[in-house]
Simulated scan of single mutants.
Amino acid sequence: MNRILRPLVLTCLVLLLAACAGGGGQRSPRDQMLYHYVSAVRWSDFDAAYGFLDPAWLAANPMTDAERERYRQFQVSGYEVKSAREPAEGEYEQVVEVRVVNRHTQVEKLITDRQRWRYDAQAKRWWLASGLPDLDAAR
């Protein structure tokens, strides 16, 4: 009996230790914001992604109904962060490759999105200060 029980207990102990070690810490507020933004974009929910835009950027660049319809014309098929950096405290930049498929023509194109994020200490949140991906900036 001891020969059977010992390997089983050891296996359970190893699995338990692996689960505890892989748990990691809690995400930072910036990483949480990026996670939710990526989720919105990957699901092609540009209306939700619009909610991440910096109010100062929106005031200078209001989105028209025609621009909203243009975003609805595309389905995101890929989103990959190529590089990221923190140029200063409260700032974050990343270069992302976004693959989109035109729902009407079924043509896929690759967009390089250079994102700038800034932390708003008063609102206690991160804002996308560079706008949504430019659908006409295919490479």
Rank of each mutant, 00 (worst) to 15 (best):
A129H: 06
A56L: 05
G23N: 08
S39V: 06
M1G: 11
P55M: 02
D134V: 01
Q75F: 10
V9E: 06
T112H: 07
V14I: 13
S28K: 13
V38W: 11
V38A: 14
W43H: 08
I111Y: 02
D113I: 04
W126A: 03
A84C: 12
S28T: 15
Y37E: 00
S77H: 12
C12G: 06
G22A: 09
A88M: 11
S83R: 15
D113F: 10
L128I: 05
R6H: 04
W127T: 07
G131Y: 00
I111E: 10
F52Q: 02
R72M: 10
A60F: 08
A123P: 00
E108P: 04
S39G: 13
R116N: 05
A84I: 13
D47Y: 10
Q32Y: 14
R125M: 01
G78S: 12
K109C: 02
D45W: 07
P62T: 00
G90T: 11
P133C: 00
A19Y: 12
L16S: 02
V81K: 13
Q106R: 15
W126T: 03
A18F: 07
F74K: 05
D120V: 01
W127A: 03
K82H: 15
L5G: 04
R3Y: 13
E97Q: 12
T64L: 09
A49N: 08
